[in-house]
Amino acid sequence: MTFLEKQTDPTAPLHWRGNMQADYLYPNGVAGDKFFKHIMQNDSFLATKCDECGKVLFPPRLYCEDCFIEIPEENWMEVPAEGTVRLFTVAKLNAHGKKLPEPKIMAMIDIDKTDGALLGVIKSNDSERDFTGARVRANLRPKDAREGTLKDIVNWNLI
């Protein structure tokens, strides 16, 4: 099929502009709520251990997605807010393609004593170095400013 008629008027409108505005409130979830409430009070993290596969799940979960069993209450454990950089990249542009004032070092950090990882920003003036394997510690907001979201982790300091 081909269209038989075409719009040939060069002054005719071509586009209609708009957005898809809506705001969101995501409850952090049953496991997430416990995780973030712990961070609000402590300088450490929580993880959950699956009895079936033995994995220490981080961030902590209500269930193990591999074994598909619920994690019992007693399998919640405290782990240090420290880890090792597994992967990293250095961002020089922001999400809108504008140049950032400072390069931003984004890393995936394997959290100590767990089988899980977290994304974070590494605080360093040297954006040229290789961060792979670097030891890092979470730099948390002052306790009275913590609000129970990922933003409570400001960035990660090299140890």
């Binding site: 269209f3 008629e5 075409k6 719009q7 008027d9 002054t11 005719a12 409108p13 071509l14 586009h15 209609w16 502009r17 708009g18 957005n19 898809m20 809506a22 705001d23 969101y24 409130l25 995501y26 409850p27 952090n28 997430g32 709520d33 973030f36 409430k37 609000m40 609000e147 129970g148 979201t149 990922l150």
Partner: peptide, 30 residues
């Protein structure tokens, strides 16, 4: 939520669109 009994994460996405009208709709709007 108001009393902060549960923790949550708030997000305000910002995305803009320019939908192409195509021939027929362009002519109709004109």
């Amino acid at each position: 939520i108001r009393d902060k009994k549960i923790t949550y994460t708030w997000w305000e996405p910002e995305i803009q669109y320019a939908w192409s009208l195509g021939n027929a709709m362009s002519k109709f709007l004109q």
